[in-house]
Amino acid sequence: LAMAPLASAQGVVAPGDVVFDDYGEVAQSLTGVPGNPEAGRTVMATRSLGNCVACHQVSAMADVPFQGNVGPSLDGVADRWSEAQLRGILVDADRTFPDSIMPAFYKTDGFIRPGDGYTGKAAPPDLPPILTAQQIEDVLAYLLTLHEN
């Protein structure tokens, strides 16, 4: 992926500019750069990034210990949801599941007492989203590999 950094930065959709349809779907790629499923898997397993396994069980990630069950198993999600639906769920799950406890991974405003990561201190004025646009696309690419059987 030898994209010039400038070119890719220009192609990135900012959190405030993401376009959702009425069902919470996001059709357009956030970066225009295809996601890397391996990188996405790492984001999902990493505590300080997606930490998706805190709430979800994924059989294909059996090597990652201590998977939670606060949310549904992600086995077979690629059969249940389209790419645009999954992107929408990752960006802001509330648009698909109203009042979901699943965090919005690509959102930067509307929070009550946002912190600076896990420090307990106040957030900086330019609080970044939890995941970058490319990390969202990477996680999405991995989710799209999760077919039943």
């Binding site: 929070f111 009550i112 007492r113 912190g115 896990y118 307990g120 201190k121």
Partner: peptide, 8 residues
Amino acid sequence: IRDTRAET
């Protein structure tokens, strides 16, 4: 509270 990425 810290674990919700909040200011405590």
